[in-house]
Computed example of a mutant assay.
Amino acid sequence: MIRRYGEAVKPGQSYRRRPGVYSVLPRGGKILVTFQESPVPEFQLPGGGIDPGEHPLAALHREVFEETGWKIAAPRRVGAFRRFTYMPEYDFWAEKICTVYLAHPVRPLGPPREAGHTAVWLDASEAPDLLGNPGDRAMLAKVLAGL
């Protein structure tokens, strides 16, 4: 059973399963995150949905690059969680299955390619309180406890 964070399941609501991959990216006492402007401005672990037929690690590299502009290396699975949420950009309710990896940010290759995203370095001590969703906060806290 994968732990749920965030909103409870709404009775009678149909949810579409949406697997995704996300990354904790520590470097020099800081954590590389993405700031997403909408639908709600918030800091997030970089990542996103796995496209049909795409390998999860390929999706992780693609999503981190799209949202931060950074190349990453040596991803290692940390854990997974699920959350039930409305995704306005796709106009559906989703059961997001979020697999989180610890990876090394290698170098920036350019600005984020995904509109509305900005790469931000947060102090590791502040980052858990600033992330927008409780699942991201829990996974980051797990990583930081092991560093």
Rank of each mutant, 00 (worst) to 15 (best):
Asn133Glu: 08
Gly116Lys: 02
Cys98Asp: 14
Arg77Leu: 11
Phe35Lys: 13
Trp70Leu: 01
Leu147Phe: 13
Gly132Ser: 04
Pro111His: 06
Arg3Glu: 10
Ser14Leu: 15
Phe43Ala: 04
Pro112Leu: 07
Gly47Cys: 12
Arg27Gly: 02
Tyr5Phe: 14
Leu25Arg: 07
Gly49Thr: 15
Ser14Asp: 11
Lys71Val: 14
Trp70Phe: 11
Leu45Phe: 06
Gln44Arg: 14
Ala94Ile: 00
Leu122Tyr: 02
Ala8Ser: 15
Lys142Gln: 09
Tyr90Pro: 00
Leu102Asp: 01
Arg82Asn: 11
Val106Ala: 13
Ser14Gln: 14
Leu144Ile: 10
Gly110Tyr: 03
Met87Tyr: 06
Pro88Lys: 09
Ser14Val: 13
Ala94Gly: 04
Glu7Tyr: 07
Arg83Glu: 15
Leu109Lys: 07
Val78Cys: 04
Ser38Lys: 15
Leu57Asn: 04
Gln44Phe: 07
Ala138His: 14
Leu60Gln: 06
Met139Phe: 05
Ala119Pro: 06
His117Leu: 06
Val40Pro: 00
Ala80Ser: 13
Val21His: 03
Leu32Val: 08
Ser14Trp: 07
His117Glu: 10
Val143Ala: 09
Pro26Glu: 01
Pro111Glu: 13
Arg18Asn: 14
Ala124Trp: 04
Ile31Asp: 05
Val120Ser: 03
Tyr15Cys: 12
Ala94Trp: 09
Ala127Met: 07
Gly12Cys: 09
Arg4Cys: 04
Ile72Leu: 08
Leu25Tyr: 08
Gly116Leu: 06
Gly132Met: 08
Ala119Val: 10
Leu144Pro: 10
Pro75Gln: 00
Leu60Lys: 11
Ala127Glu: 12
Lys10Asp: 08
Asp123Arg: 13
Pro105Cys: 01
Val100Ala: 12
Ile31Val: 15
